[in-house]
Simulated scan of single mutants.
Amino acid sequence: MILRRTRQEEINKVVKIIDEAKETLKKNNINQWQNGYPNEEVILRDIENNESYVLEHNGVVIGTTALSFNGEKTYDKIYEGKWLYNGSYAVIHRIAVTNVDGLKGIGTEILKKSEKICMSKGIKNIRVDTHKDNKSMQGLLLKNNYKYCGVIYLKDGSKRIAFEKEVK
């Protein structure tokens, strides 16, 4: 499996994977990604900013994420806890995977490969947030040694729980 930057012509593949994830969240009564976000416009902006990545297996796109090195304004203030590290950090957003028979660990693969990209850029800290009800994402993060740090609030006031990891 390889994690690489998304090409513009792959926008429909990425949107399809995200739409599948939206449906899964909805079925599990998780009020995340249920208001039209993320959408094609967001993904196009990620591609233009060189922040959109896809996980490819045997030539097939099976996962997506956004990986940014530009900080995150909503991470400036953290409540009910604190960030583990000060200084430069990467941000992982919008992890989504497709359902592939017989393939497990796609989310872990996205995280591990994102961590390698960070290390190659000299970035040792990664931050990520998720909805309080998104137990599968929380489980993925904890399984991959991300530490719970506290609560952040999105621009619209939505509460998210925040995690951070020092990559080595």
Rank of each mutant, 00 (worst) to 15 (best):
N39K: 10
V15Y: 08
T24W: 15
A162V: 11
I152E: 07
S68K: 12
E56V: 14
N144T: 06
A96L: 04
S52E: 06
N49F: 05
I92N: 07
I92P: 07
E20V: 08
D19H: 09
Q138M: 12
K121F: 12
T98P: 01
I2L: 12
K168R: 13
L141W: 05
D156G: 06
V151G: 01
S120D: 12
K165A: 09
K116S: 11
V167W: 10
N99M: 06
A21T: 05
I95Q: 10
K26N: 03
E115P: 08
G157T: 09
K124M: 11
Q32G: 06
H131R: 06
Y148P: 07
N35M: 01
N134E: 00
G81M: 07
L141V: 03
K16I: 07
D133N: 14
V42S: 07
L142Q: 12
L103Y: 14
K82A: 13
M137S: 05
M137R: 04
K147N: 14
K82D: 11
K26V: 13
D46G: 08
Y53C: 11
T98W: 06
V167F: 02
G139I: 02
L103N: 09
I95R: 05
E115Y: 03
Q8W: 11
D129N: 10
G63D: 07
G59I: 10
H93M: 05
I2Y: 10
R5H: 15
M119K: 14
I78T: 07
V14W: 01
V14H: 08
I11T: 01
I78G: 03
